[in-house]
Design a protein around this nucleic acid. Structure first.
Lengths: 350, 350
DNA sequence: TGTTAGCACTCAGAGTTAGCGAGTGCTAAC
DNA sequence: GTTAGCACTCGCTAACTCTGAGTGCTAACA
């Protein structure tokens, strides 16, 4: 059987309607609402064909048709109407993102919150990961007697710090010397290259005994660990309860408890994270069975080829794809611009 | 009518059972399960009395009794069995909190997650607020040409930093001078005292023109703002769907969407935050109507009289109060100990 | 040959009814 | 004061019916 233009128009009409109503769509509805110039009987025949071809399914004999994953796939690839955000939506999104945010974690949390509020789906954001992370600078700053602050900056200008206790007898001047040696010795190294071997060398070079050096190096190691640490922000989980497909509490609970597990979400995103740009996984296209009734749309953004992160939206397969895609694109653009601003990669727009 | 010992024992038995089963409790159940040496008829009479006194309520004539908020209040204040965490629970909680966490935000998130997993309720944690926050140290560290890191440490040793762009012509040495002046001039001040007036003074003292000083001061201001910023962590919202009292999706959605709004939760916690130690608000004792079917248990912890924060659990009024209270106490102890460790207030336990 | 009107058929969901059983309050006896 | 007995209440469940949206098929039509 051949997928002609008419079939496509009918399929599109069905999916558009179904996304709206979440009710199985009958031939009469299509004949009435869409001006295809066809009677319900003709549409009925076409719908039977579309079902045979696997684009539609029937919950039970006497019900209308429902799109299958394959149907959604065609819709997303070929049929879906172009969607540009309305000017007022752009304004709204921009203004909600406008808070002056100076911390990566808050920026992502914010982005996720804005997205979920706007789309009414569940949104998540993963803190950017370094492709090849190296240490740009290490500094040790005396704070008060017995306390110093260790600061690590990596090549993407992500900064972490930690307070460390040090011997009360170290003079501030000595600390600065240690700081300089550390900085010279470690900067440029990949994070994982800081090993015991190097520590031994440092001990020798600085002439500072290990037990004094150790807390500082421990502090630095913690900072490095934190930089590598992948943080996940999920917002708008309660939206799930709005979809009729999850009116059954048991089903909603299953999905929500999976989403509550950060590690599960990370697994779901991991697969998409490798690709560039926008990825759409519809229902069973997802490897994980618990998302088999949902679609997962993610955008990966790269920053100066060093950082890469993911922002995504999860919702029922019956999802407003056009709207979700355009808003996701828009927000991810804002986020990467902001990260650029934060880390000073881009001297541009300010 | 007088509240004698027997009535109390019966009330306790009813509440204990109801917490377990979430089903209205009948007189026969109590007579059978609890060895009170009374027939169901006697218990029936007592239950009628307890209802008249307002401790119990009847969903409908032919159903058993259900505790009222007043009933829970008495239970919590007087009747509730003492509850100590089992050794294996303590071990479990401790080990789940044992991850070496070196960032406040992650520590709180973790605490919240552990609590919600253990109690099966929804848990939240608010980042500690300063009672009277002052600046302990400000440092400006050169990172590379045109970039510097501004670091602010407050009197509770909470550290924030931000990258700032600076003129490419400032020499590192000059930056250190600026850093020292800033530090001398600003440390000891309350965060809100850093105003335009002081900035003008700084300009004069350092001899550095405003347009060079400004980005640095802006960065410092951002850091200060971040320190003051109250962060909220909520975990285990999906647990709500496990309670039979929220088997109705509409009801669950109402609660969950409220919980999803960070600001709403903060409002709910605000009232408790002023008190010391543990606060229990049962049902309508809460000012906010959307929690009227829930209980909110919070613990405020203080750290060296400077920091104060809140950890809390929200669940149906039919809550396992003894368990929740003891685990909340335990976790909050761990959290404040950890914060002590992080900020080095307490040279103790390591 | 493709399109359409007509018709018999299907079946989920809403509404109705009946029966069950857990639980009550009251009364009278212990 | 306690308890056994009993009539009564009423939410819940299961069985049943009815309705209507939707289908597939057939035959007539352009």
């Amino acid at each position: 059987m051949i997928m002609d233009e008419r079939k496509k128009r009918i399929l599109q009409a069905i999916i558009d309607d179904y996304i709206d109503t979440a009710e199985p769509i009958g031939s009469r509805t299509i004949a009435r609402k869409h001006e295809l110039g066809l009677s319900s009987a003709t549409i009925r025949n076409e719908m039977a064909d579309l079902e045979e071809m696997g684009y539609l399914a029937q919950p039970h004999t006497s019900a209308g048709r429902v799109p299958s994953d394959k149907g959604y796939r065609l819709y997303v690839d070929k049929l879906m109407p172009a969607h540009d955000l309305k000017i007022e939506d752009i304004e709204k999104l921009r203004s909600e993102m406008e808070f002056r945010i100076n911390e990566l974690s808050q920026l992502l949390r914010q982005a996720s919150a804005v997205l979920s509020r706007f789309t009414q789906y569940t949104s998540m954001a993963v803190s950017p990961q370094l492709r090849a992370s190296t240490i740009k600078a290490i500094q040790v700053v005396p704070i008060e007697t017995g306390k110093a602050l260790v600061i690590v900056v990596n090549n993407a200008d992500i900064v972490r710090n930690g307070l460390v206790k040090i011997s009360e007898y170290i003079k501030p001047q000595a600390l600065i010397t240690i700081s300089n040696i550390l900085n010279n010795r470690l900067s440029g190294l990949a994070l994982h290259q800081v090993n015991l071997h190097i520590i031994k060398e440092l001990e020798r070079e600085t002439g500072v005994p290990g037990e004094i050096l150790m807390p500082i190096l421990d502090g630095a190691a913690d900072c490095i660990e934190q930089i590598d640490n992948q943080e996940l922000y999920v917002e708008g989980t309660s939206n799930i309860l709005n979809y009729p497909e999850f009116k059954d509490v048991a089903k909603a609970r299953e999905l929500m408890s999976m989403i509550d597990e950060k590690s599960t979400i990370c697994k779901a995103l991991a697969d998409n994270a490798r690709k560039d740009g926008l990825t759409i996984k519809i229902g069973t296209e997802n490897d994980l069975t618990w998302i088999k009734d949902c679609s997962l749309i993610t955008v990966n953004y790269n920053i100066a080829d060093k950082l890469s992160g993911t922002i995504g939206i999860i919702g029922p397969t019956r999802m407003e794809y056009p709207k979700v895609i355009s808003s996701l694109r828009y927000i991810s653009k804002i986020v990467s611009d902001e990260i650029n601003r934060l880390t000073g990669q881009d001297p541009g727009t300010g």
